[in-house]
Amino acid sequence: MSPNRGLVLLARSGYAARGVVYLIIGFFALLAALGSGQPADSHSSLEKLLGQPFGHALVGVVVVGLIAFAAWRLLQATRDVDHHGKSFKGIAIRVGLLAGGISNALLAFFALTLLISGLKSSKSSEEGGKTQDLLSTVLSWDYSNLLIYLVALVPLVVGIIHIIKGWKASFEKYFEADEHVMRYVRPLSRFGLIARGVAFIEIAALLALGGSRYQAMHPPGIKDAMNGLESLPMGWLVLSVVAVGLMAFAGYSFAQAFWRKINMDVPDAPHALRKRVGL
């Protein structure tokens, strides 16, 4: 396999893995809206996936995909394969891509730890607990609560960007698909991006309003946002719409896995990536 083809596979498998995670989140959020359970975030979705038949194999596939997606985001940010440039807007987009890469790497780490813990639990539940304790230690670093208000700006900006991107359908320029395909992909993607944007904006609101109650490394996530929507008047209906929207975002991710343009006109990209990760 050529280096370029390998990078294309890396990117496409990453988009597909993100789609799997959001499909599960949206599905359980919809069940919660219909009174059949509680919403799930990315972490609990992976835990639920692990409990399914062939769950360990499925989580293993997702781990590989998330690592691939994190690596692809790193390449997008550092090598500018999508040609965002070095203007203020371009740098801001690339910083966002880098942040996305880090968050997906952390999610992959969680999934891998979960997988190792699950495999060990069949041999020794004590060893599995130690793995979870290690993860808890890593994620429990404490900072000043003041940082929460700064952290709240991140999901706020991300949410607004998603809504604008969905409303303007600016994602189309990155797709290589004919109009017959885009006729279905376009509305699905717009709905999914706007729904994800709404969820991120609510996360920002929860952070800003409850900053004194949250620690910097334990901010509210998608699950908290879904719970907040459910508590609104006619909350089950609002939550249902957003849940379906998150599943639509999963569809958008799957569409990216199939039809997104993967630019490879970057000199020595594989070597640069290996050098950055220390290989």
Rank of each mutant, 00 (worst) to 15 (best):
A205K: 15
F109A: 15
G192L: 03
L7W: 07
G100C: 06
G65V: 04
K130R: 13
K173M: 07
H162K: 02
A152E: 06
R18S: 13
V62I: 10
V151L: 15
Y214P: 06
K275M: 07
A177P: 14
K223V: 02
R274M: 14
A243L: 04
G55Y: 00
H180T: 15
A255E: 04
G211S: 10
I201A: 08
L146C: 12
G159Q: 05
L74R: 04
V158S: 06
R94M: 09
I67E: 06
H56C: 11
G60C: 06
Y15T: 09
F200E: 01
G235I: 08
D265T: 11
G245H: 02
A216P: 00
L273P: 05
R213T: 13
R94P: 01
L107Y: 01
W72H: 13
A208L: 12
G26W: 01
K123D: 11
K168G: 10
A152W: 12
L135I: 07
L106R: 00
I148S: 06
W167I: 12
G90C: 04
L273Q: 13
N104K: 02
A11V: 07
S117I: 01
K275Q: 14
T113L: 09
V181G: 03
A70P: 11
N104M: 02
L229C: 05
A16Q: 03
G210S: 06
L206Y: 07
S240M: 10
M226W: 00
H83W: 09
